[in-house]
Amino acid sequence: MTASAPAIRVQGLGVRFRRNRGGRRSIMDLFSDRSRRSKPGEFWALRDVAFDVQPGEAIGVVGRNGQGKSTLLKLVAGVMIPDEGDVQVHGGVAPLIEITGGFVGDLTVRENVKLTAGLHGMSRAGVARKYDGIIDFAELGDFQDTPYKHLSNGMKVRLAFAVVSQLEEQVLLVDEVLAVGDKAFREKCYARIDELLSEGRTLFFVSHNERDLRRFCSRGLYLDKGRLALDAPIEDVLARYDADYPVG
Results as ranks from 00 to 15, higher is better:
41 G>V: 04
95 P>W: 07
64 R>F: 05
50 A>C: 11
39 K>Y: 10
77 A>P: 01
50 A>H: 01
120 H>F: 15
19 R>H: 14
45 A>C: 12
68 G>F: 01
112 N>W: 02
53 V>K: 01
69 K>Y: 04
22 G>I: 09
123 S>E: 09
116 T>S: 14
8 I>S: 05
76 V>M: 02
92 G>A: 09
107 L>E: 09
50 A>N: 05
54 Q>I: 08
63 G>F: 01
51 F>L: 02
115 L>G: 09
10 V>S: 00
11 Q>E: 13
97 I>K: 05
4 S>L: 06
15 V>Y: 04
103 F>N: 10
92 G>M: 08
31 F>S: 08
8 I>H: 04
91 G>N: 03
88 Q>N: 10
33 D>W: 06
101 G>D: 14
95 P>T: 03
64 R>P: 03
52 D>K: 00
122 M>N: 06
106 D>I: 08
108 T>H: 07
81 I>D: 06
72 L>M: 13
67 Q>F: 10
80 M>R: 12
78 G>W: 07
117 A>S: 09
37 R>P: 00
103 F>W: 07
87 V>P: 02
82 P>S: 01
100 T>W: 08
119 L>R: 07
116 T>Y: 14
120 H>V: 03
120 H>D: 10
38 S>N: 14
103 F>Y: 15
55 P>W: 06
99 I>Y: 03
24 R>V: 14
110 R>T: 11
55 P>V: 07
63 G>P: 11
66 G>Y: 09
94 A>N: 10
111 E>M: 08
83 D>N: 14
54 Q>G: 04
74 K>I: 00
3 A>L: 14
58 A>M: 06
70 S>Q: 06
